[in-house]
């Protein structure tokens, strides 16, 4: 079972990002997803910087994936996308691409890429659509977080040939994408003149109900759950249904979270104990409802 570090969804200062990946290069993860997937205005690291980071990680024996932006709006977004695809096919160092919209799928197919990852925003919910992606060159399926473990198993059961499957296993859930920046809105700014106010907000801004209950997280144009989705306690079932677990970077202690997952997978720690140990490392209460086919916000414990 592989552990993957998902793309960094927040906007951290350049040095924090570099330090983060230097640290994680030493952590027991197998794959690392790099690149800006949330907002094209964020520029602490440009594509060339990400490629520099990728060398460090590759030297440490990690598989590097570059993720494409979830919402493509402009011609300049497409230029970045084309560069990523070209670099992945022709460039050195090489890397695989995670396609996060059908434009990326088209460009990868056109470039002859045959070893890419179908990202969680492609809305792959059934075997027919997954097979189309496999036929187009996808060799890993990153499942949409809202899909349940049972639904995922049904898809895999009827596939002509198995495909490596990756499940969102830890982190605040990326729930929605907008053209509007909710962080800028919070500061009464327009997106075009946002002053990059999301910079250094390491885990996003918590949105609460009027009863003070943490509900969502504002992360620029992305809306996340406030709760931290974690499958640490569900790993015995999860490992039957997937080959890769995605851990989403958080402001602090990501490496320790990775180590807890590794410890459970290696049989060195019991799932319940690891879940309990992770609680103090989490920015908010845990949830796992999506995996169990329930509301994502729920923390479900089988009777």
């Amino acid at each position: 079972m592989k552990l993957a570090l998902g793309p960094l969804l927040y906007y951290w200062p350049r040095q924090s990002v570099l330090d983060f990946y230097a640290d994680l290069a030493e952590a027991p993860v197998d794959s690392v997803y790099l690149g800006e997937t949330v907002c094209s205005r964020r520029h602490e690291l440009r594509l060339d910087d990400w490629l520099e980071v990728s060398k460090v990680l590759a030297d440490a024996g990690k598989e590097v994936v570059v993720s494409t932006q979830g919402l493509i709006e402009s011609e300049s977004d497409l230029k970045v996308l084309r560069r990523i695809v070209r670099q992945s096919v022709d460039g050195a160092p090489g890397f695989r691409v995670e396609a996060n919209d059908m434009g990326a799928v088209r460009l990868l197919a056109e470039a002859g890429a045959r070893d890419w990852i179908a990202g969680p925003t492609l809305n792959i919910f059934n075997p027919a659509t997954l097979q189309l992606m496999i036929d187009a060159g996808a060799t890993r399926w990153a499942v949409a977080p809202e899909m349940s473990g049972a639904a995922l198993a049904e898809v895999r059961a009827v596939l002509a040939a198995p495909v490596e499957t990756e499940v969102f296993a830890y982190g605040r859930l990326p729930l929605a994408h907008s053209a509007r920046c909710f962080t800028a809105r919070h500061f009464n700014l327009q997106k075009d003149t946002c002053e990059f106010r999301c910079l250094s907000i390491m885990d996003g801004i918590t949105l609460r109900t009027r009863e003070g209950e943490p509900f969502l997280t504002l992360n620029g144009v992305q809306t996340q759950s406030a709760r931290v989705h974690t499958l640490l306690g569900d790993l015995p079932a999860v490992r039957q249904a997937a080959e890769v677990l995605r851990i989403s970077p958080q402001g602090a202690d990501t490496r320790r979270i990775v180590e807890l997952f590794r410890a459970v997978l290696d049989g060195a720690q019991a799932p319940a104990a690891a879940l309990a140990a992770s609680r103090e490392l989490m920015v908010e209460a845990p949830c796992n409802g999506f995996w169990h086919g329930r509301a994502g916000v729920e923390q479900y414990v089988a009777a």
Partner: peptide, 21 residues
């Protein structure tokens, strides 16, 4: 819809029922 249609799991998160599925 303030979110990109087809890319919004807010309702799924709160209720278990989503526009997508």
């Amino acid at each position: 819809c303030v979110m990109v249609e087809g890319r919004c799991a807010l309702s799924a998160y709160a209720t278990g029922e989503s526009p997508n599925c």
